[in-house]
Amino acid sequence: MTVTFPQKGLPWLLLLPQLLVTAVFFLWPAEQALEQAFYQEDAFGLSREFVGLDNFLDLFTDPLYYQSMLTTLVFSFSVAIFGMSIALLLAVMADRVIRGKLTYQTLLIWPYAVAPALAGVLWWILFDPSMGPIALWLESMGLDWDHYLNGGQAMILVVIAATWKQISYNFLFFLAGLQAVPRSLIEAAAIDGAGPFKRFWTIVFPLLSPTTFFLLVINLVYAFFDTFGVIDATTKGGPGQSTNILVYKVFEDGFVGLDLGSSAAQSVVLMAIVGVMTVIQFRFIERKVQYS
């Protein structure tokens, strides 16, 4: 039990800045979104009428919204799975080497600091159909690359850009997880004649499962909400709807399409999704404490 100070007014004064910012810039807009979701506004913003659950009904009967959900799932799981697989491979290798571990770490983690939008632009020029070296190389191999027209290829481009940025994060956490695996266990297995691959799959990988699950949640949250810049700087949700993930759609329908009611309803749905993911994250972290 911590010893406390007796003052009664002071704590409120100390909390005031945080609570004020939270109330004005977080809770008020969230409340506005909630309210707006039940109204239909005309295009000029002059009048609005109460429409009840119509915005939500429209949303959930709109095939485009389901398509966007599907796109988000494909995008997020691709980013999470590729990013984690590559990072795990690199982390296992880095855990093995004796010389130069820190150098490798330095050379692998810096993309964390690159803004998602910039990551998108960097990969865009590599894949630009008229001048990008990779696109031209693919073409010479007989594969027509044009992410301006081909939705699947546009998706591949944004997945690569988003994954590239996230490998560093996964790498650091996998490396820390690997270093926490007791050496004695691995030695015992080696003495019993298990080779490196068998040791990895039967001992190391199962012991890493808390890290893996934690990273899966973090990566999905990242792909859901932090990749706006990648999409906006490269494909803008296109071609067609092929890369229009939920967090991009809510922006586009609100700011470009000016359909405020629908955008607000989408905000409410997204807030619910973040809420669920945050709870999962916290539940898990409570469990992780018991693991160790």
């Binding site: 100070f5 409120w12 932090d226 809510v250 607000a264």
Partner: peptide
Amino acid sequence: FFRFPFRNFCFWIIFMTLMLPVEVRIVP
């Protein structure tokens, strides 16, 4: 370091900001 009424409530209010990233409520 202080004890005051609604302490946990304040904590929860701050916690809620975690669930409201700016991207999802950008228009309001």
